[in-house]
Computed example of a mutant assay.
Amino acid sequence: MRAADHPYFDNDGPIALAHRGGSFYAPNIGRENTIAAFAEAVSLGYRYLETDVHATADGRLVAFHDDRLERVTDGRGAIASLPYAEVDRARTVGGDAIPLLDDVLDAFPETRFNIDCKAPGAVAPLLDAVARHNAYDRVCLASFSAKRLTQLRAGGGTRLATSAGPRGVVALRFTPHLVSRLLHSGAPVLQIPVTHELRGRALRTFTEGLLGRAHALGKQVHIWTIDDPAEMHRLLDLGVDGLVTDRIDVLADVLAERGHPLTPPT
């Protein structure tokens, strides 16, 4: 699939993605992946939000990054081993509940989501949620697991946009003769960091050559997670298609400087 063939990627200018709603934006600190954090990003004009999903022990799909509750809430335990009723009692430092993905999609019907499937148990509920909301045109599904990506593509079919998994990215960057594998993955976008940890070594993942090969295949390239304005400008100057950031205020200013201001809702 080429990015131009999927409505998710239809955007005027670079795609700005608010990482977990914008974790380092002052009003969102300690409130990542909550309705309140997403609302802050949308109020700044963000049309694309990044989030993560886990499934509870009884199969409810929640927007949450960690597999455990402790880091950002007053709850305890692994989400996969807890019933939703217990997860729902946890609160962030701002008093926010952990939202269901259903509630997130309902709350922001005009917003597009990059959704990272964090656990095997989340695959089926995620596909069900996308189908239930008929959200095929406004989601892109991602995972660090090649197996989960394969399952998501098999379950979602050609209507569903997915990102290239780590194996595809490494193949495209370091072994050009394996490009055809990525081409046949169906992924219209590479979502990568500037560097990639491989066998204990920090290797430079993003290069101009990689960008050129991806664009030749009709793929977009989104870089995560970029919070420094100079680095934002450098990557945009090179022609990357999207940036994922925790500093949603900084990226908004950078895009405005470059003639692509975000448009807050009226």
Rank of each mutant, 00 (worst) to 15 (best):
H19M: 08
Q151M: 13
T266G: 14
G242P: 04
A164E: 05
L235W: 01
A37L: 05
N134T: 12
D74K: 09
Q220P: 01
L105Y: 00
L17N: 03
A85D: 15
H196I: 15
D66G: 09
R68P: 01
L69P: 04
E208P: 03
V244R: 02
A131R: 14
T111Y: 06
I248Q: 01
I226Y: 02
Y46K: 05
D58H: 10
K118P: 06
D58K: 09
L141M: 11
T73D: 03
G94V: 07
A97W: 04
V130S: 09
G212E: 15
D88W: 05
G156C: 07
P188K: 06
V53L: 08
P229V: 08
L251W: 04
R258N: 10
D246W: 02
T158C: 08
A63S: 13
A18T: 04
N28Y: 04
V189A: 13
A39S: 15
P7G: 12
R204E: 15
R173F: 05
L251K: 00
A39G: 12
D237T: 13
P188M: 09
G45L: 09
R213V: 11
F206N: 00
E50T: 07
F38S: 01
A119G: 09
A164Y: 03
T111W: 07
P125S: 09
G259R: 10
H177W: 15
L149N: 00
R153Q: 12
V221K: 02
L262N: 03
A4P: 03
A26G: 08
E231I: 11
V240M: 06
P193D: 13
T245W: 02
A252V: 07
V244L: 15
V179S: 14
V170G: 05
P125E: 06
R234A: 15
I192V: 15
G95F: 10
T51R: 03
R201K: 13
D5Q: 14
H215Q: 12
T162K: 02
A256Q: 13
G259K: 10
A129K: 02
S43W: 03
D253R: 13
V123T: 09
S163V: 14
F113Y: 06
A63K: 00
I79L: 12
I248C: 04
A78G: 06
Y84P: 04
Y136H: 15
C140K: 00
R167P: 04
D253C: 09
T175L: 14
D102Q: 12
G156L: 05
S163R: 04
A230C: 11
Y46A: 05
F174D: 13
T34Q: 00
V244A: 06
G121V: 01
A164K: 03
R20G: 04
L178R: 11
H65W: 11
D74V: 08
A252I: 07
A154G: 09
R91L: 14
A97T: 15
P166D: 07
V62F: 02
P27Q: 08
V169Y: 03
L61A: 09
R112S: 13
A85Y: 10
